[in-house]
Amino acid sequence: MEGNRIVSKEKSEWKPRIIAFLCNWCSYAGADLAGIGRLQYPPNVRIIRVPCSGRINPYFIIKSLQHGVDGVLVSGCHPGDCHYISGNLVARRRFAILKRILEFAGVEKGRVQFTWISAAEGERFSQVIKEVTQEIKALGPNKRFVKEA
């Protein structure tokens, strides 16, 4: 709700709200590492921890957009590193199609992003968040799928 208020303010002040679904075994720990290392990154991201990128149902992503978030980031383990052997690999196919279909339907490129970040990549995590935030900021507030009150 707080974010909602931010959106309604002047455009210059507008800050995107981004949801990041992070795999518990890699990217979430990566975020932790970034924190421990005191690495700076924009505070626009709300993190949701998931047990594996394979757990991420396309519903989560689309529903996030429907609820008015401005961007979604999904991050899992690098191929070959999945805690459950192949969760991220099956997910990769799912994400590939999802991303293409969403973009085909008119969702801007960059609104929904995917990445692999390992537990050791704290620096990379903060870098990715910076980039994603910047890109989504450039896109402006999300208008796709949003179901206004």
């Binding site: 990769r92 196919r93 293409r100 992003q113 995917f114």
Partner: peptide, 13 residues
């Protein structure tokens, strides 16, 4: 329902 190790992933950041 399946995957290959070398599936395309140009879309992954």
């Amino acid at each position: 329902a399946t995957f290959k190790m070398d599936d395309p992933q140009e879309f992954i950041k």
